[in-house]
């Protein structure tokens, strides 16, 4: 594996191209932000609805840059012992038990408590060295020789204390461990944070990041995404499918279908080897992209109308392309 920054992006277009080569279709905005993040060495904070490819972007970047992807999933109650490091207490204890004999050997000839302690001291903080350190994602990311892509997923789920703790990592790429001192990154990782906006992030965190909002893609972009992700799909079906999904998104739904659901649905249709969308087909497969009972009820009422509209738009898109 080569180092992170041996890779060079020449321009925004280059980013877009290379993303496409690993099957990630990046909009101009995404590409620009990535290009900047890479050159400014700043973290990216990505917001947007679930399933529009926030996490996917990190995966794509690690593939392009050919470095490891280290992922840290945030949740309520996540603290530094799970994110940064932990002492392997069990191992420490086991070693002291096993080394009892060695210890008494070592202590042989020592007169009194003071001398014994003196002698132990000369052997360093053996038990608080890196041998007994359990590295967690953040520590690993800083320790990586070749750099890495660090994905801090769903940061909004973590607590505010943890968010504050992250600040040092994000701005200076270093962490302080009381027993070992400050550890700086060997190679600055490319950091990507994602948030589903369940709560507002603090200003301090936002200031340290580039902000990127990924909305639902427009029809053209979504077609491109489908083309690379589900290549077997026929042209007409793809156009109809995208137009249909786009109109579903205009409905008043609890959870709108996002790109990942579109892809799922496309795969299902491919399996069923469908050529065209029909009312029955849509009704039977509605549950692949709508995940709530109420949503399915709302959508199934309007299938016929939306399908007609989708066909029209698909034809229009076709005509425009031709």
């Amino acid at each position: 594996m080569k180092s992170l920054y041996e890779h060079r992006f020449n321009s925004v277009d280059a980013v877009q191209r290379e993303c496409a080569s690993v099957k990630y279709i990046a909009s101009r905005q995404i590409a620009t932000t990535v290009y900047l993040a890479f050159n400014l060495q700043k973290p990216i904070l990505i917001e947007g609805p679930a399933g529009v490819g926030k996490t996917e972007l990190a995966k794509a970047m690690s593939e392009i840059l050919q470095v490891q992807l280290i992922r840290m999933q945030c949740y309520e109650g996540l603290d530094e012992s799970k994110a940064l490091y932990e002492w392997k207490y069990g191992k420490q204890l086991l070693y002291t038990q096993l080394l009892k004999d060695k210890l008494s050997e070592l202590m042989e000839g020592a007169k009194g408590l003071a001398q014994s302690i003196e002698r132990l001291h000369s052997h360093d903080d053996l038990f608080f060295s890196e041998h007994f350190l359990e590295p967690r994602p953040l520590f690993k990311a800083l320790h990586e020789d070749t750099g890495c892509v660090l994905l801090i997923d769903e940061i909004d789920k973590s607590d505010q204390e943890f968010e504050a703790f992250l600040l040092e990592v994000l701005s200076d790429f270093q962490v302080s461990i009381p027993e070992l001192g400050t550890i700086s990154a060997r190679v600055k990782p490319l950091v990507i944070l994602t948030s589903n906006n369940t709560r507002e992030m603090s200003d301090a965190l936002k200031r340290r990041c580039l902000h990127l909002y990924i909305p639902f893609p427009d029809a053209k972009l979504e077609r491109q995404i489908l083309e690379t992700r589900v290549p077997g799909l026929s042209d007409t079906l793809r156009r109809e499918l995208v137009a249909f999904i786009q109109s579903v998104r205009t409905l008043d739904l609890k959870k709108q279908p996002s790109v990942s659901e579109t892809i799922d649905w496309a795969r299902v249709l491919l399996l069923l080897s469908a050529e065209h969308l029909s009312v029955d087909l849509v009704r039977d497969t509605l549950n692949t992209f709508l995940k709530f009972e109420e949503d399915i009820a709302v959508a199934s009422e309007q299938i016929v109308g939306m399908l007609d509209k989708a066909r029209e738009e698909a034809a229009l898109a076709h005509a425009r392309n031709a």
Partner: peptide
């Protein structure tokens, strides 16, 4: 200074990413 001013859209996104902090 990194992206330059040649492309209006790129300029917009570049400044937007650094200056805007939420939707």
């Amino acid at each position: 200074s990194i992206v330059g001013v040649a492309d209006r859209e790129v300029l917009r996104h570049a400044l937007g990413a650094t200056l805007a902090k939420s939707l």
